[in-house]
Design a protein around this nucleic acid. Structure first.
Lengths: 333, 333
DNA sequence: AGCCTCGCAGAAATCGATTACAGGCTCAAG
DNA sequence: CTTGAGCCTGTAATCGATTTCTGCGAGGCT
């Protein structure tokens, strides 16, 4: 392990001078050259642990997400990494698996590692980031707000996304549109369902069929279970809004297994299906700009690390409807 | 920030005693209790940076992968995290995006952060982990071997997987089976193509059609491009082996867009399609035990961290063929 | 009684960087 | 010629833990 002492000895200067050269503080040109030569010859790399201990701030940024196997969050991760790495920070990703205890652990570790910043997609409604703020650490909430924490927040317009998906199905002629959304304690799930409900309240002149709102977990199996249940009803709906990408996959799988297509039972998905094996215009979906959400969160985090004060800001990014030409006929070719 | 000095002061003992209590070294019962009480009252958490600096070893394990958006690698990550977290290590994930320079950066950071161990799915054939070994850091290669490095390695039986996929198509009656695999500098891609070639060499009594092997990148767009090219040929193949999951998705998308199904052009995929929106037996695929690969790698890493010496071990895990009842008829219902 | 061993606890060194402080030098102004 | 300002530079403190070393006191053995 080559340390700053080795470099100092080789260059014939003090460690203070070496440190100053490497950090761009004023040092006479001749000595600076000696130090740079010595550092290169010894292949010196500063020890980040020592630097972090002294500076009380590391060059790491943590991104904590609830489901690493969901393309929604990995795309988000790409966005955060894009901005943070450009600024010289290394992004480390932590997967909580939706478990608030695991999340608590990761947050403790991040705090104790003196990380420069935290981007958090909270596992539940009770995440506590007060200690980060107390110690002046930058925090940005992404996808899911953190209650009672005055932090920068980047969100999807989930109500709007729910509205778009529902509207697309209604406009395509479906009249009994169900909704499979996520757990009741996840705000995004509730908001998307609210958008669905709003549209139905607006367009429908007759009383709606009860029991059309299902809460799955936000995974493929959850979508499968609820879709099977809906299709097994004596009076099944003629269309379904899938509350997220994975629920959509589950719903489509059930459809496919029963030999049905999105022309028979309408499906609109809130979220993208990058690995669906379907042509992109096989069904309507609301594309969510996850990567942009990540870059926005990363940019705000960098501003905070750079010292931006002031109250928490809030950015809401709209989804975008992408629909096949004629959903009903999309797969009939 | 509450430090060990605060705890020591409150308990009326020295910092050495606090440290010993918290690390389970022998301390008299009465003092131990004083320390524990003080630590609890102050809500003390040891500073990991200081600990790492002194111990020269952190409690972090790094997992470096080339594509975080590929479910293959995220599933792998789950496996590694499962084992490592049980042993008290926090896993941080680093996405190189297949870029050897980014990989180099992450490895430098990991080294400089004194991480306890590294699980590496190499971005290219020239990754250098010599420094890790020199400093006694644990390293495990996963999915892709690291040339010239004597490290533990966990691999898929890629040749075997290529064979299974090809055999499945042949057995289903396809006689002109092409192969879309990954870049020539990725060993897994070459091995899978080799398995394809082996089977064709064994079964075919007539000369094969040339130009049936395509090298895509290992992404959806790569699969799309090559599939389009193959289908556009004057004499297109009647079936295709997709070299990985994403290439398979791309190929299936092209098929779907052209109004074709896996009954028209046979497709066998090496890898799983967790988000395909197709029923699991719509087409034959070779399921790859990625999560098990991760747990195996994690277990070996922990052994090395615990001090296991000896030469690099090699574990090869076979894939498993999953085929629909009758591939040709799978989507005709 | 005297000596040795053993266990426990505190003082201080240590990990490897950054940085406050102080000393020395140069140069310009008075 | 003297004094002060300004710029480098080195010494040493510092970040917060762990761990070596040293010393103290109790207990056992001869």
């Amino acid at each position: 392990m080559v340390t700053i002492y080795d470099v100092a000895a080789r260059a014939g200067v003090s460690t203070a001078t070496v440190s100053r050269v490497l950090n761009g503080l004023s040092v006479s040109a001749d000595r600076a050259q000696l130090v740079l030569d010595a550092a290169r010859e010894l292949n010196y790399t500063p020890n980040r642990v020592a630097r972090t201990l002294r500076r009380q701030l590391s060059e790491l940024v943590a991104l904590v997400i609830p489901d690493i196997e969901n393309p929604f969050f990995t795309s988000l991760a790409r966005g955060v990494a894009d901005t943070a790495q450009q600024a010289g920070y290394s992004v480390v990703l932590c997967n909580t698996d939706g478990d608030v205890d695991k999340e608590r652990q990761f947050l403790d570790v991040a705090l104790s590692e003196n990380i420069a910043g935290l981007v958090l997609a909270a596992a539940g409604p009770r995440s506590d980031v007060a200690e980060f703020r107390d110690r002046g650490r930058a925090v940005v909430a992404v996808d899911r707000p953190i209650p009672d924490a005055d932090v920068d927040t980047v969100l999807i317009d989930n109500v709007g996304a729910g509205r778009m998906a529902t509207r697309a199905l209604w406009d395509a002629g479906f009249r009994d549109v169900a909704c499979i959304t996520g757990p009741v304690d996840i705000v995004t799930a509730v908001d998307r369902a609210r958008g669905w409900q709003q549209v139905l309240d607006e367009v429908s002149d007759r009383p709606r069929v009860p029991g059309r709102l299902e809460h799955a977990d936000f995974r493929v199996d959850g979508g499968r279970a609820c879709m099977s249940h809906l299709l097994g009803l004596p009076d099944p709906p003629d269309a379904v809004v899938a509350g997220n990408n994975l629920v959509g996959v589950g719903a489509l799988q059930v459809l496919s297994e029963r030999g049905l297509s999105p022309a028979d039972v309408g499906i609109a998905v809130i979220g993208d299906l990058p690995f669906s094996a379907l042509s992109p215009d096989a069904l309507p979906f609301v594309s969510l700009p996850t990567r942009e959400m990540g870059t926005a969160a990363g940019a705000m985090l960098l501003e905070r690390i750079a010292g931006h004060a002031g109250p928490g800001r809030r950015v809401v990014i709209p989804g975008e409807l992408r629909a096949g030409e004629t959903p009903r006929a999309a797969t009939s070719a």
